[in-house]
Design a protein around this nucleic acid. Structure first.
Lengths: 214, 214
DNA sequence: ACTATGTATTTTGAATACAAAATTCTGAAC
DNA sequence: GTTCAGAATTTTGTATTCAAAATACATAGT
């Protein structure tokens, strides 16, 4: 038995993010604190603490007297978030040790090419993508930047379950990752950063069609 | 009479940030919730909510069973924060309407040159600097970016009260702001961004000496 | 049928209460 | 004097309670 020694609010936050990723919360719907707390088997106090933390990451919105609701999605906001993440990941690459980048490049290439299976659930695709970007940023020593990226990406998870299947875009994503990895292999950091930006812009455009007009 | 219709947690958060800016909280010291709540005339519940929000912005740290403490300062973290803010402000400039930038450039120049008074308290200098950067970013339509910048800068406030007076650096800061404004006047956005980055790097270096070694 | 108004119910925001940790204090042993 | 064990105290983390605001409902009037 693993005795959890983290505050409830953090465990609850993680559980809510899991459920969000699984698509259990629709954008725009409001949270009923009593119901959710009962469902989680905790009191409203740590639940509210978790909700406040998530509101700080843009996952939830709060209105005086009206409680919390899952932030509505919009194409505009998605574009904004992608621009931010692209800039932050670029910065992370810039401030990474070039030697380390060269060292992980082969593995990045492997991962990018590795899964040509057509039948992957959306969840697995996203998990792999996270893993790939995680490895890409593994050499960044800017801890605050890594932390910040995690928060901003949490705010983007709301969009991940909007897309259903698709096989062609996955191939494109894979090809773009290969391109980045190849640049890193050749020690072409500026080229890698450009390719990374293109990857985010490309991923954004592929996603945009799936976001309902507000 | 102004009826406050914002949640207590937000009012408390703002009040704590004010006090932090005034230097009333030393880095590394821990928060006594009961004492602070009594001082503010509220219960621990909304205070803790505010503390959790501030922890999300990096102003505070929390440890299970040990509560909250004001995050210690370090040169490393300051460098990290400056790199992040520089990147985000650059992005904000890039995604601003060039016409708007040209339009505000004269006012930016005015503000930068406007205050040659040697006897300015550190607080006023910081307020002016905030105002100047606020105007610089006023044309950025990326709301999430503006919001994020606010949060990251909140985490940087801990460093502002470390510096005591200085007059030469203020002149440098002013000169750098002029340079940025001039670039904008000439419609040289890449030049302005480069100058903006230089401004942050310069400000950082001037500050570094005042940060105690960890 | 529709709107408006007043009432009941739900739900949030904040205060209080309580239990479990962590800290401080005390004193004995060396 | 120092160090350790154990009790007393403080402080946190979570649950519960309470009041006020928001919502839903029902009734009367047009």
């Amino acid at each position: 038995m693993a005795i959890e020694r983290r505050p409830l609010r953090e465990q609850i936050r993680d559980e809510l993010m899991d459920r969000l990723t699984r698509g259990e919360f629709a954008a725009g719907t409001d949270v009923n604190e009593a119901v959710l707390a009962a469902e989680l088997g905790v009191s409203r106090t740590p639940l509210r603490e978790a909700l406040i933390a998530l509101a700080g990451e843009g996952v939830l919105e709060s209105n005086q007297g009206r409680g919390f609701r899952f932030a509505p999605v919009s194409r505009t906001e998605f574009r904004e978030l992608v621009a931010i993440v692209a800039a932050l990941e670029s910065l992370a690459l810039e401030s990474s040790d070039p030697a380390h980048l060269r060292a992980i490049a082969p593995r990045l290439l492997d991962l990018a090419q590795g899964f040509p299976d057509q039948v992957a659930t959306h969840a697995t695709v996203d998990r792999r993508d996270d893993e790939w970007h995680g490895l890409l940023l593994s050499g960044c020593s800017n801890e605050r930047l890594i932390d910040l990226l995690g928060r901003v990406k949490a705010g983007m998870r709301r969009y991940e379950n909007l897309v259903v299947a698709e096989d062609e875009p996955v191939a494109r994503e894979s090809e773009e990752h290969c391109e980045i990895a190849r640049r890193l292999l050749e020690d072409d950091l500026p080229g890698a950063i450009t390719a990374l930006r293109a990857n985010w812009v490309g991923g954004m455009e592929r996603m945009l069609a799936h976001i309902p007009a507000e």
